[in-house]
Design a protein around this nucleic acid. Structure first.
Lengths: 228, 228
DNA sequence: GGTTGTGAACAAATTCACAGCG
DNA sequence: CGCTGTGAATTTGTTCACAACC
C-alpha cells in the first residue's frame, strides 16, 4: 500500500542496521509489537528519528499500537538486501585480516567469507579459520567463481589503493577499508572505511577538551557513526 | 594572532585526523607548503571543505601560497591533543582484542597499550603481544596507575554495557566500542563505535540498489565516516 | 487514549563564490 | 595573479508538534 519509489537518505541507511539488530533481539521474545519510543531506546536514538527513518521504508506501523516486530524485520531485511547472502573476500591476512577471518559474526549475518587472499607468497597456502589463503593474482577467478560482491581490505596502507583497483577490476563494487589510507573508487562503487587511528584521535580531541575544562563552558560529547 | 575561542564542528573534528595523516606523508618529503587543493586530493575531500575545516583551527595559511606543512602539522597535533600520549586499555581478549593488541599502529601513534583485561579467568595470566592479561576486576587500580583515558571494548555484545560502566567508574571517559551493541554513556564521556556488521549491511543496501538498476535512475554511492 | 506518519521549523554541514591579501 | 578565508546560499539531517487513525 505504500509507494515504492522513495529515496532513503544516507543517514537513515546507516541507522537501519542498528534498528535491525534491536528487532532481532526482540524476535526471540514474545513481544509482538514495539513502539517507536522503545525501539529508539534500544537503538540509542530518539523516537522522532525512528519514526522518520521507518517512514522511508513505508507505512508499516499501526497508529495507537506500534510496529509488528516480525513484519518490520522482514521489510527491513528486504530493504537492506539481507534476504540473500553476500560472499566477501578478505584481502591481506595479517593480524587484522586473520581476526576478521575468525570473526563468527560475518557468516552468521549473511556475509560468508568466501575467500582469503594475500600478496605475500609465504602466506599463500596456509590455512586460517579452515580456509586456504590464495594469491591475490587469483582475484578475478575467485571473484567470478564465488560471486563475490564485497571486498574487505586489511592490508598495509601503501597497498590499499592497488588492492581496491584490483577488486574493482574483478567486479567487486563494495569495499570495506580497514587500511589507514584514503582510497578512491568510482561513483559506481561503494566505499566504507574503518580507521582505528582516526577514531582514537577523535577521542583524543574530546578527551583533551575535557581535561582542559574550567576555561569556560563544557564541550559537547561526540557521537559515533564511523563505520556506523 | 588567531582568536582562540572557536568551537570546532563535529564533522570537522572527524576529518582532522585524515588531514593529519596526509601531512605526515608530506613531512618526509621536501615540500614546504601545500595548497588546499592538493591536501583535499590526498584526503579525499574537496578544497572548499579543507579550507573551511582548517579555518576553525586559525588562519594558518598564506594567501597565494598555501599552508606550511610543518606548522600546520604542529597546530593540528596540538588541537587534537596528540602532543601527549594517551594510554589505552583493551577489554576483551578474544579474536578482535588480540588483533588490536598486536596492531603496531596504536603505540606508534601515541596510544600505547597500557593494559589488557578480560573477565574470563582462563585468559588471565596469558601473554598477548608481550603483555600479561589481567582480570577486569583490577580495572580501577590499572586505570589509576597507568593513567588510562581511553578504553577499547572488544567483548561480546552482551557484556559491552557492563564493561562501559566499569570503565566509566574507573575514570575512563573515552570509549571505543567494537562490540555489536548499543552503549549508553553520560554526556561527560565520549563514545565512538566501530561495527563491522553494520558496515557490511550498509554496503549490502547499496550493492542491492546497484544490482536492481534499470528500474530507473541510478542510486548515489555512500560515503564513509564511521569510524572515519 | 495511544502511537504513527509527516509537514514545518530548526540546526548542521556542505558548497559556492568572491573579497582580501600575499 | 594565486590561494586563502569566509559570508551567503544550498543541501542534508534532526526535531517539533499535531493531525490522522486504530
Amino acid at each position: 500500500m505504500a509507494d515504492r519509489p522513495r529515496r532513503i537518505p544516507e543517514a537513515t541507511v546507516a541507522r537501519l542496521p542498528v534498528y535491525l539488530r534491536s528487532l532481532l533481539q526482540l524476535a526471540g521474545e514474545k513481544t509482538g509489537t514495539i513502539s517507536s519510543e522503545r525501539l529508539a531506546e534500544m537503538a540509542g536514538v530518539n523516537a522522532a528519528k525512528v519514526r522518520k527513518d521507518l517512514s522511508y521504508l513505508g507505512s508499516y506501523g499501526t497508529r495507537g499500537v506500534g510496529y509488528d516486530v516480525e513484519y518490520l524485520l522482514f521489510q527491513m531485511s528486504r530493504e537492506l538486501g539481507l534476504t540473500q547472502d553476500w560472499p566477501v573476500v578478505i584481502v591481506g591476512i595479517g593480524n587484522m585480516g586473520q581476526a576478521l577471518a575468525n570473526y563468527p559474526g560475518f557468516t552468521s549475518r549473511g556475509f560468508p567469507i568466501a575467500a582469503l587472499v594475500d600478496a605475500d607468497a609465504s602466506k599463500v597456502g596456509h590455512e586460517v579459520h579452515g580456509k586456504r589463503v590464495r594469491h591475490i593474482d587469483e582475484l578475478p577467478d575467485i571473484a567470478a567463481e564465488q560471486h563475490i560482491a564485497i571486498g574487505i581490505i586489511a592490508t598495509p596502507a601503501h597497498a590499499a589503493q592497488d588492492v581496491a583497483d584490483r577488486l574493482l577490476a574483478a567486479g567487486v563494487t563494495s569495499i570495506l577499508n580497514f587500511a589507514p589510507a584514503v582510497i578512491n573508487v568510482p561513483a559506481t562503487a561503494s566505499l566504507r572505511k574503518v580507521d582505528l587511528a582516526v577514531e582514537l584521535q577523535i577521542l583524543s580531541f574530546y578527551q583533551q577538551q575535557r581535561d582542559n575544562e574550567g576555561d569556560g563552558a563544557a564541550a559537547p560529547a561526540p557521537s559515533a557513526d564511523a563505520a556506523g
